[in-house]
């Protein structure tokens, strides 16, 4: 496995792994454990922790109606990402990877642009687009349906989440498209040519050659989609802090509100630990499922 070098010495391991391990421990492992400690207290973040609550914060988490709402939103975001964003990204990747397509390079860059924008800029930009008094949506509405009132998408509890979902798909499809383009480049052109010569239709080529060949890319993009959905914060925050009445709340925006705006670091820690566990459990199951599939 290590060629002729044999097993690496302890010193080599220490030199090569040490720095990364120290940074990772200090910035990831330690805070996770710290949050786990906070989560057992009622604490405002100031002064010493004195009010031990045991698992009371966790039972509050389980019963908290806003937590249910936020997690439900996260789930919807994950499902929409998988059901709409990924097929869209795949379709576009296939189009812009086609060698006969002259403008491919332009469209690749163009579709990737939203992903380059920072999350906060994206949020502010879409806030303008949706603005009920000056926004683009209103301007378009005035042309198409001048008689009807333009919808205030961010001011109506039943439309907020969908308005945010449009932004999420808009922002991240380019990223997934790029993963797929890279995946498509790994598929040997000969396989596709051979299949075509054998008389396979375009769909059959996609179904039996392209899709299996892109398994790793798809696994990767599904993983990013789901984890990303549960960690979603910036865009939602910039577009209206998950409000009105938590209509666009995600679990991370709720954690921020509780921990940093309400000074409830204890309960905020509980939410953080639960997000961590959700992501960890998903990760373990996903990895396991992939390993099982491969063997």
């Amino acid at each position: 496995m290590y060629g002729g070098m044999g097993k690496p010495s302890i010193l080599t391991l220490a030199v090569l792994l040490g720095p990364a391990l120290i940074v990772f421990t200090a910035l990831v492992i330690v805070p996770v454990f710290e949050a786990a400690v906070f989560s057992l207290y009622k604490w405002n973040g100031l002064g010493p922790m004195v009010e031990f609550r045991g698992l009371a914060n966790y039972s509050q988490f389980i019963r908290d109606a806003i937590v249910h709402k936020a997690l439900w939103h996260n789930l919807i975001i994950a499902v929409v990402s998988l059901a709409i964003q990924l097929p869209l990204a795949m379709a576009l990747a296939l189009i812009v990877s086609d060698r006969r397509f002259k403008g491919a390079m332009f469209f690749r860059t163009f579709f990737f642009l939203p992903y380059v924008l920072s999350e906060v800029i994206t949020g502010v930009l879409w806030q303008f687009i949706y603005h009920p008094q000056y926004g683009l949506v209103r301007a378009i509405w005035a042309i198409l349906a001048p008689a009807a009132h333009a919808p205030a998408l961010m001011g109506n509890t039943s439309t907020v989440l969908w308005a945010i979902l449009v932004v999420i798909v808009w922002k991240y499809f380019g990223f997934h498209m790029t993963i797929y383009i890279a995946g498509l480049q790994d598929i040997p052109q000969e396989q596709i040519e051979a299949a075509t010569i054998d008389g396979a239709s375009g769909w059959q080529v996609f179904r039996s050659v392209t899709l299996p060949g892109m398994r790793t890319s798809i696994q990767l993009s599904v993983f990013f989609s789901i984890i990303g959905s549960f960690q979603l914060f910036d865009v939602v925050w910039a577009m209206g802090k998950g409000d009105p009445v938590n209509a666009g709340e995600t679990i991370v925006t709720y954690m921020y509100k509780i921990g940093l705006q309400r000074f409830n670091i204890g309960y905020g820690g509980t939410i953080a630990v639960c997000i961590f566990l959700i992501c960890l459990v998903f990760n373990l199951f996903y990895q396991k499922a992939l390993v099982r599939e491969e063997t």
Partner: peptide, 12 residues
Amino acid sequence: FQDGFLGATYND
């Protein structure tokens, strides 16, 4: 209140 006031910020 103005249209969509539930989504409005203080600057709006």
